[in-house]
Amino acid sequence: MSEQYLKKINVTVNGVSQVAQIPPRMTLLDFLRDELDLTGSHAGCEHGVCGACSVIHDGAPVRSCLMYAVQADGCEVTTVEGLSHADGTLSILQDCFCETHAMQCGYCTPGMLIAGHSLLQENSSPSEMQIVEAIGGNICRCTGYRQIIEAIALAASRLKEAS
C-alpha cells in the first residue's frame, strides 16, 4: 500500500475479531467491503444520504460511509451478514422481506434490514409511523416502501408469537 499513514485497528465484526493495517482515510464501509469481503453493506451515495451502507456500531445503527475504519478501533460492528443465523438460515425479519416482496433490485435491502432489525430490538410492537420513521433515512427507488413497511410489521408480529 502506498499510503503515507497506516494505522493498526482491531474491530470485532459479526463476532469475529479483525486486526488490520489501514490508512485513516479508509471509510468503515470500504474496510468491510474491500478488506473483509463483506459486500453485503452497499456503497450507494457514499456521502450519508441513501442509507444502503448502514451497519450496527456498538449497538446503534450508523452509516458506515460516514465513519473512518480507524474510528471503529476497539468497537463492535454488525453487518447485514451478521443478521442471519450461524448456519446461514435467514432471520425472521429477512424471511419476512422475502415473503412480502420487500425488495426488487436489492440495493437498499441491507440498509433496510439493519434499520428494521435495530427498530425491532428497541420496540417489539412498532406503529406504522414508527416503522416509517425508522426507515426514513434509507432510500428505496423500487418498492415505494409499502412492502418494506409490511415486512417489518410482519416480523414484529412473528417475533412476538415466537417469544
Partner: peptide, 9 residues
C-alpha cells in the same frame, strides 16, 4: 435533527 443513523453518531 437528522435520521436515526446520523443522530446516533
Amino acid at each position: 435533527v437528522g435520521h436515526t443513523q446520523t443522530r446516533n453518531r
